[in-house]
Design a protein around this nucleic acid. Structure first.
Length: 812
RNA sequence: GGGCUCGUGGUCUAGCGGUUAUGAUACCACCCUUACACGGUGGGGGUCAAGAGUUCGAAUCUCUUCGGGCCCACCA
């Protein structure tokens, strides 16, 4: 047989699985279903190692379920609507979305993402995923738009969608409202500036702020109700520096007396507390920031400047006028938009929201009904839900996304929804077919906003199940069985999906959740472009193979982060080679045998046969248990240890004697156990390393009846009648003794195949004798001992103690 | 500041109340023994992050401390 070329082998079998449709979902099948809601990767670049990790771990479970006899529903999708994709396309084509018509920009996005998706799909296929590639969806497709718009109409009809003008988090770079979940912390340098405000009696008070550019929007001053230093101030007025308007001093418990001077100015809106004060004290609204991040006419001479510029200019001006009393450089955490890292502002805009703060308890209950793996991951979601303080803002002032199926009556302003039958609609192009229900007008204004990406992404279970499109399918597979995803987006994707499923169906979206960790670099750091430590899966596959990458991905417990360790890949390559070489051995010694015929023949089992069969079934048993509990790393490690240390190192060596020089009956029994054990091990390895196991399976000559693929074979079933403690203990003792004799030879500088005249095994406990009698022959042959005896009682002479009960006496 | 989580030979990892603490990888020595030198055999290397407690007994349970990670809160 030729030397193993993994890349050729992997490509060959991937092509074979495609042609043979081994991964196809069979709709008409009566088998129990197992439906997976796989994360659709964002179309904004190439596949990274984190993808390889998460998708492989999920794939291992999928392949296991398939081999357990489930009809896999395992589609794949691409998330190609939304800001991430827009930015990707803008960057690649060097254009700006807002300079084009929505339809024109959308067209460019569609064309460009198509190419990017082909690349992505190529990479994901190279991992050897068992997904059904005929079920691919794109979140910008007509069908998905339809489902997303259905979702909106349903939520609106249920009275949970509302449109309101109110202060909300806004990104001035992306020009859009953002949700709580899209925020990120960023440590930024800033100045804490002490400003002097003048009271009516000309006295001065000092207020520290990091945002002097907000002065024009200052509408009140607050002190803590218990702060004795300043209680006298409450009710008085102070003059805002530069702008010279008078604002009232009030008390509020939200003031932190420890911070700055303990006096704080309130502007609409410098931060979230400002907004709370504005609402609680019914303050005047003075908006000075435009949606594009510049200041407006209310900011006087600072009109037209960007926030940062205004901050610098006004600081200089204040200092020049002697209106400051100090300036301190600080580093503080600021909320920024995760996509562009711009500081978040609070602007008053008209946005669509989903009302859900009153449903927190229900969401918690839903989460508890899902089986979380690992269990503790649920606490992240619980933590998030209890901390929620905003309704979900679902409108975005962007272009490439699913449009709201909404118009507004030009005459009376009433909301006009699209008809379910007409979905999907684009209000910019389409018009309502009926007149306004309120005033009868035919004139409508389209809603220009698009839905938040997560509004659509949170529908992947409904998209997969074709909600409203193929109701029969939906009924069949909803709720789905498994959602695999990363722990970083539990609060985003998992949470929003649970929300949607509850709002639409009062149901959980899936029964099981598996949460994977992250791929880190060799030093345990996050992979990022700026650190230059990004490892590309494509290169890893070229260097080591897909099976090796899969082995690495399964080498950790679910939920743990995995550093990129080359040695893990080296270990994988060695294992793959060992499997391949052992298959060559099996083929060599079973050349003219037929597994099917051997199965029917009467067997004369040797003690080592009973030992290896018992061990094999013990391994099947624990592997099955581990796989059921998503503990794939344990299953893989146990299978590997059994295969290498017991099957290869011990059993194959022991069996040679019978195969080369045994009687026909002995030979046939040995051949049978050899094939049986090897074939079973291959199947245990298949979910992890499907390529090499397929290669070995298809080339097993003794197998007359092969199926199209080992990946559709049944997962081994435990035969408890073969699990036998006696033989397992026998095997253990045998290995211990052989190992001790080898150690002895090694220490004496003897060759391992040097003959020994005599060895006596002394047993403290006579009961052990029965375990050793059956393996006397095996030990003698393996260690080249002319005469091997077993004696009960205290040892005489120079002995080697193996443990408290066993000692050896060796004569050279 | 809060929640969750992790910390075992150089490196990665199993074990989760009683083992001479598992295996991998790297290292050293010997060996090309008819599947495999991408192999075999053997060896050195760990006070199981630190401290205290519970227990006859702790890597394993509890508490404290230190260090890493993720998420959240704070952000005047």
């Amino acid at each position: 047989m030729a030397q193993l070329d993994l890349h050729t082998v992997e490509k060959k079998w991937q092509k074979h699985w495609d042609l043979e449709k081994t991964n196809a979902f069979i709709r008409e099948s009566n088998k129990p279903l197992f439906c997976i809601d796989v994360p659709p990767p964002t179309v904004s670049g190439r596949m990274h190692l984190g993808h390889a990790l998460g998708y492989t771990q999920a794939d291992v479970i999928a392949r296991y379920k398939k081999m357990q006899g489930f009809n896999l529903f395992y589609p794949f999708g691409f998330d190609d609507n939304g800001l991430a994709t827009e930015r990707f396309v803008e960057k690649e084509l060097n254009i700006r979305g807002n300079t084009l018509q929505r339809s024109e920009f959308t067209k460019l996005c569609l064309e460009h993402t198509k190419k990017a998706e082909e690349e992505l799909m190529h990479d994901f296929k190279a991992l050897g995923l068992a997904a059904d590639w005929s079920l691919v969806y794109r979140t910008i497709s007509e069908e998905v738009r339809e489902i997303a718009q259905h979702s909106f109409l349903d939520i609106y009809t249920k009275g949970r969608a509302y449109r309101k003008e109110s202060p909300h988090m806004f990104c001035t770079t992306c020009n859009t409202a953002v949700a709580q979940a899209e925020l990120e912390d960023s440590e930024k340098e800033s100045y804490f500036i002490d400003l002097l405000f003048e009271l009516e009696n000309k006295e001065k008070i000092t207020i520290s702020t990091t945002r002097p550019e907000m002065l024009a929007a200052c509408i009140s001053i607050f002190v803590h109700p218990d702060d004795k230093r300043y209680l006298g101030l409450v009710g008085k007025k102070a003059k805002v520096p530069i702008f010279n308007n008078w604002v009232a001093i009030r008390k509020d418990a939200r003031v932190n007396p420890e911070k700055g001077t303990g006096i704080v100015m309130c502007c609409t809106f410098g931060d979230q507390t400002d907004m709370e004060w504005y609402k609680a004290h019914n303050l005047e609204l003075k908006i000075i920031i435009n949606e594009n991040g510049t200041l407006n006419e209310k900011a006087g001479t600072y009109k037209g400047m960007k926030i940062k510029e205004a901050r610098e200019r006004i600081t200089a001006e204040l200092e020049k006028l002697g209106l400051t009393s100090g300036k301190k450089k600080i580093v503080h955490a600021v909320n920024v938009h995760e996509r562009c890292k711009t500081d978040i502002e609070f602007l008053v805009t008209k946005q669509w929201f989903i009302k859900y703060l009153d449903l927190k308890q229900e969401f918690l209950n839903q989460a508890k009904q899902i089986n979380w793996n690992p269990k503790h991951m649920i606490s992240r979601l619980e933590n998030w839900i209890s901390g929620l303080q905003w309704d979900w803002c679902i409108s975005r002032q962007r272009f490439f996304g699913v449009p709201f199926p909404v118009w507004y009556c030009k005459k009376c302003g009433a909301i006009k929804l699209a008809d379910e039958k007409d979905l999907p609609v684009d209000p910019l192009k389409d018009t309502p077919k009926e007149v306004c229900e309120k005033c009868g007008s035919k004139e409508f204004e389209p809603e220009k906003d698009v839905l938040d990406t997560w509004f659509t992404s949170s529908l992947t279970p409904q998209i997969n199940a074709k909600w409203k499109i193929d109701e029969k399918l939906f009924e069949k597979i909803y709720p789905l069985d498994l959602r695999p995803q990363g722990h970083d987006i539990i609060t985003l994707w998992a949470f929003n999906t649970i929300v949607k499923s509850y709002l639409h169906h009062k149901s959980i979206p899936w029964k099981n959740m598996m949460v994977n960790g992250w791929a880190l670099d060799a030093k345990g750091r996050k992979m990022s472009k700026s650190l230059g430590n990004v490892v590309k899966p494509r290169e890893v596959i070229e260097k080591y193979s897909a099976d090796a990458l899969r082995y690495w991905a399964c080498s950790v417990v679910l939920g743990e982060d995995v550093p990129y360790n080359e040695k893990e890949f080296v270990a994988a390559i060695r294992l793959i080679n060992k499997i391949y070489n052992s298959s060559k051995f099996v083929n060599l010694v079973t050349e003219n045998a037929s597994y099917e015929k051997l199965t029917e023949k009467k067997k004369k089992y040797a003690s080592e046969d009973l030992w290896i069969l018992s061990r094999l079934n013990s391994v099947i048993k624990s592997s099955t248990e581990n796989m059921e509990n998503y503990n794939f790393s344990r299953a893989l490690a146990e299978t590997r240890d059994f295969f290498w240390l017991e099957f290869c190192d011990m059993y194959i060596e022991e069996v040679k004697d019978r195969i080369y020089s045994g009687t026909e009956e002995e030979k046939q029994t040995a051949q049978f156990v050899l094939i049986e054990t090897f074939l079973t091990v291959l199947k245990l390895f298949t979910p992890f390393m499907p390529h090499i196991t397929e290669e070995c399976y298809q080339s097993l000559n003794a197998l007359n009846k092969k199926s199209r693929s080992i990946t559709i074979e049944k997962y081994p079933k435990t035969d408890s009648s073969l699990i036998n403690e006696f033989y397992e203990k026998m095997g253990e003792l045998k290995m211990e003794i052989i190992s001790s004799i080898r150690k002895y030879k090694n220490s004496k500088g003897m060759a391992l195949n040097k003959e020994l005249k005599k060895v006596i095994i002394y047993l403290e406990d006579g009961k052990l004798k029965e375990y050793l009698e059956p393996v006397k022959g095996t030990i003698s042959k393996t260690c080249k001992i002319q005469s091997l005896e077993i004696e009960v009682g205290k040892a005489k002479g120079a002995i080697i103690e193996i443990n408290k009960q066993i000692a050896l006496l060796i004569e050279e």
